[in-house]
Write a protein that binds this DNA or RNA. Structure first.
Lengths: 184, 184
DNA sequence: GTCTATAAGATGATAGAC
DNA sequence: GTCTATCATCTTATAGAC
């Protein structure tokens, strides 16, 4: 039972996040995972297949974050718990960008990846927040708007913090969103 | 008096926006601008020098957008006028991403470009919004927060619309921000 | 299943004729 | 200033031995 596939995935996850999709070559993944270059193709038929697997992992990680947030007692506390994650991961996000939004952005510049799949991490976030706002009594259309505002704020804060290399920009925006959630 | 340099810049601007920085090769720029590949190096010593020029142009475009918004009668109307730009450019942003934020994101994944310069378009936006909120009577620290929230919302909305290929996501967020500006 | 060698093509950059 | 030819390197992918 070999763990090579897992090591390849881990390396691809890490490098794609830290260096961006386009700068992550199979050679670097091979080196990082200690799997010989040619052997990669036994586990992933093409580089694109590897990216598809990476997206699935990120989607799963989003679901984990959401599952943890969902343990909070009420919808408002759950939304706050979600924002808390981006506060905890603030330094990493500031250095490398959001592992979810950044990936979705990079993927929309590649061709050949199914548009539905490549946006899955963000779509999962949006749908989850949408449900919470509905449970809070918001009408369907308004809940969609509020969910969009929350995720846009998070992703925009992550983009600013990353581009300007300043974690404060993300922290301030998250705190701003937290106060906003309290008032909804 | 040759216009080759300008043609090269135009092509680089367009391709970097539509395909992303990493997929924009000198060969494509040469083809698009009808300048022979080898001749590019007479106008730009390296590919990176070309990107530096591209950033400067984008920074100038941001300044133009801000100058237009600054013709509105008061600070609040000026901030609203800024958001209006992202409504007008909504379809293009949804297809290719924000020409300012997307570039800054792509650049932070390249190495060798001065971090100060590469974030210039976003920094210009932030500073301008900051000034307006201060003129509206907000204390320095709060104005910084509000400016961050505005730009984060815009950029996050652009990211969502681009990643999910749905211009509605940006439009909804801009309208949300516009109503928010009215209440500040 | 694993690994080396290498094909095939793309890419940034340069040399040198005009 | 302009352009062709080309180098050196990188990158995805495959062939084929073990």
């Amino acid at each position: 039972m070999s763990d090579k596939r897992q090591r390849l995935l881990d390396a691809a996850l890490r490098l794609a996040h830290e260096s961006g999709l386009s700068r992550t070559t199979l050679a670097r993944i091979a080196e990082e995972s200690k799997v010989p270059l040619g052997n990669i193709y036994y586990y992933f038929r093409t580089k694109e297949a590897l990216w598809r697997a990476v997206i699935e992992v990120r989607r799963g990680q989003v679901e984990q974050v959401l599952a943890r947030a969902a343990t909070a007692p009420d919808p408002k506390a759950q939304l706050l718990a979600l924002t808390e994650y981006f506060l905890e991961a603030g330094d990493e996000i500031s250095r490398f960008g959001c592992p979810f939004g950044g990936l979705c952005h990079d993927l929309s510049q590649e061709e050949g990846v199914d548009p539905e799949l490549r946006a899955a991490p963000l779509a999962t976030l949006l749908d989850w927040a949408d449900e919470r706002f509905q449970t809070l009594g918001q009408p369907k259309k308004e809940a969609r708007r509020l969910a969009g505002h929350l995720v846009a704020g998070i992703q925009g804060g992550a983009l600013l913090a990353h581009a300007m290399a300043d974690p404060k920009l993300l922290r301030r925006e998250i705190r701003f969103l937290q106060r906003w959630i309290e008032t909804v």
